[in-house]
Write a protein that binds this DNA or RNA. Structure first.
Lengths: 230, 230
DNA sequence: ACCAGTCAAGAGCAGTGCTCTCTATTTTGA
DNA sequence: TCAAAATAGAGAGCACTGCTCTTGACTGGT
C-alpha cells in the first residue's frame, strides 16, 4: 500500500506541477496554451504529458475549475470577513475581492470570462464552481431580506413572463428572494463582470487614473439600485 | 489610368472577398482564424494571401474595424430612428440594436469584446470605431440634459479624485455633461456589455427562457439609475 | 518592345496537438 | 519470490499552422 501510494503521490505532484507551469504559460502567452512548451519547461517529452492530461482541453478544464474555485474562495472569504448585518460592506468587500483577484490573475480571469475557446465546450464539472461568486452576491441580498434590512422592489415592475422565470430561479438559488430583487442582484453581478472585463481588456479606463475610486463608485451605484442601506 | 484602376479594383475585390471568407471561418471556427484555410476556400495557395494582408493580425485588425463600424452603425441608426425627445425610447432602441447585432454576429462580437487575442495588440485605428457605441449612449444623456429632461445627480456623490477624472472625460466626449451623470451613463454601457456577453458566452441565462424580456428589464433598470424619464 | 511592378505558386522552416510503438520501471498477485 | 500486469517516458511520425523566400508568369506604362 505504501508502495502504491508513493507512485500515486508522484503522480499527484506531477499533475500539480503541470498545472503550475501551465498557469505560468497562460500568464505570459495567453489562452493558446502549448502542451509542448509546458512539457519542454518540465524537461519532458511532449507525448509524456498525455499520461497526465488526455488532451489539451482537459488541461484547460482543470485550470478553469481551479480558477473558478480560487475566485469563489476569495469572494466568499471577503464576504465572510464583513459584519453580517453590514450589507453594503459585504457587497463592496465581495466586489473588491473579485476585482483584486482578476487584476492579480488576468489570464485566468480571461479564461473564465473571456470569449470561449473555439472548439472547447466547458464540461458540467465547471458549473458548480462557476456559480460561487454570483451565489455569494445573491446571498447578501438573501440575508438582507431575512434581516428586514432590505426592501423588496415593487413586484409590478416585472412583466409577466419574466416574473415566473425569475421566481423559479430564486426558488432554486435563494428561496424566498423576491423575483424583482433577484433581477437587481443579477444586474449587480453583470455590472461587476462588465467593470472588471473593461478594466482588464478595454482601453476606456485609460482616461481614468483613479481606477479604484471609479470601481468603488460604480459598485456603489449598483448597491443603490439594489437598495442596500447606507 | 483606366487600366491601372482595373487592377486596383480587382485588388479591392480580392480584399473584400478574403474578408468575407474570413468572417465565415470566424463564425464557424472561432477566433483562431487560419489563413491557410481561408486561402484554400478561395482556391489560392496560402502564400498568395500575404500579397493582400501582410500578416494574420492585419486581417484580424481589418475584421475588427469592420465589426466595430457595423455595430456602431446599427446602434447609431437605432438611436436616430427614435423621437429625439423620447430619451428612454432612444436608450432601449440603442441597447436592443447592439444586442441584436451581437446575437446575429456572435463571433465578431467575441472578437471585439472577448478576451484579447494573445500576442495581438489592437492598433490605434480601432479606437475611433470602438467608441461609436458608447458615444451614442452618452449622446442620449447629453441631449437629455440639453433639453432639460434629465436631471444631474448630486455632484457630491462623486469623491474628489474621481470627479476631476470624469469631468475631463466629459469635457472631451460630451462637453457640459456633469461628471456624475457621465458615471451613470458609463454604468449603463458597462451593463449593456455585460448583459450581451453573459447571454452570448455564459450559461446563466439558460434558466431564463424569455431572454428578450430579461434584457429589456435590465436595460430599463439602468435607465432608471440614469434617471431617464418614463 | 522592353522594363518594372505585381501576382501566384511552391518549397521550406519552426512550431502545434495528438497517436503509436517501444522500452524501462514499478506495482501486484499467486 | 518471481512472473504478469500496469505505468512511465522516449521517440518517430501525421497533419496542421503562420510565415518567408525564391521562381516564373503576367500586366501596365513608356
Amino acid at each position: 500500500m505504501a508502495a502504491s501510494s508513493i507512485r500515486a503521490r508522484v503522480r499527484a505532484e506531477m499533475l500539480d506541477e503541470i498545472k503550475v507551469v501551465a498557469r505560468r504559460h497562460l500568464a505570459s502567452d495567453g489562452a493558446n496554451l502549448s502542451l509542448r512548451a509546458v512539457a519542454r519547461d518540465m524537461g519532458m517529452v511532449s507525448s509524456a504529458i498525455y499520461r497526465y492530461f488526455p488532451s489539451r482541453d482537459d488541461l484547460l478544464t482543470a485550470l478553469i475549475i481551479d480558477a473558478y474555485d480560487a475566485l469563489g474562495a476569495v469572494v466568499e472569504a471577503a464576504d465572510a470577513g464583513a459584519d453580517r448585518l453590514d450589507l453594503r460592506g459585504r457587497w463592496h468587500a465581495a466586489c473588491r475581492a473579485a476585482r483584486d483577484w482578476a487584476l492579480a490573475h488576468p489570464a485566468e480571469y480571461a479564461l473564465l470570462y473571456g470569449s470561449p475557446v473555439p472548439g472547447y465546450a466547458a464540461p458540467d464539472d465547471t458549473v458548480g464552481p462557476a456559480q460561487r461568486p454570483p451565489a455569494t452576491l445573491i446571498g447578501i441580498l438573501h440575508d438582507g431580506m431575512a434581516a428586514g434590512r432590505l426592501a423588496a422592489p415593487d413586484p409590478g415592475e416585472l412583466p409577466e413572463p419574466l416574473r415566473t422565470d425569475l421566481a423559479e430561479v430564486a426558488d432554486s438559488l435563494a428561496p424566498g428572494l423576491p423575483a424583482a430583487l433577484l433581477a437587481r442582484g443579477m444586474a449587480g453581478w453583470t455590472q461587476l463582470f462588465g467593470l472588471i472585463s473593461f478594466e482588464l481588456f478595454g482601453r476606456i479606463n485609460r482616461a481614468l487614473p483613479h481606477r479604484d475610486a471609479y470601481f468603488d463608485h460604480q459598485t456603489a451605484l449598483m448597491a443603490d439600485l439594489i437598495g442596500l442601506p447606507r
